[in-house]
């Protein structure tokens, strides 16, 4: 399996670390909505087909990447930087947004 890093080009999967499901939405750290936290920690869409996931090019430029990969064929249809993506599944993004709001 090759992942095309936007910086480094196509590299073998051994250079990358899987950071898990990119569909999950982390509740606000101050949230006391237990259901939302449980869902974030335990529940997965686990689709057979295109899957949004997070990989880190840990053996290369070390950037975090948002990858769409097919779980039936291992075919990768898109790779993009996580950076600037204040969206779903970005661990800590809610905390960062909050910090940015204050500054």
């Amino acid at each position: 399996m090759l992942i095309t890093c936007p910086y480094c080009g196509p590299r073998d999967v051994i250079e990358f670390t899987y950071q898990g499901d990119g569909n999950r939405e982390r509740p606000d750290p101050a949230s006391q909505n237990f259901e939302a936290w449980n869902a974030y920690v335990y529940d997965r869409l686990n689709p057979a087909g295109d899957h949004n996931e997070i990989w880190q090019h840990s053996g290369g430029c070390r950037t975090h990447l948002r990858v769409v990969r097919n779980t039936l064929t291992h075919e990768i249809s898109s790779v993009a930087f996580m950076r600037g993506d204040h969206g779903r599944g970005d661990h800590g993004s809610a905390a960062r947004r909050k910090a940015e709001d204050k500054s």
Partner: peptide, 10 residues
């Protein structure tokens, strides 16, 4: 170590 429904690995 990554999600997969393919019955083959890398």
């Amino acid at each position: 170590g990554y999600n997969s429904y393919a019955q083959r690995g890398n």
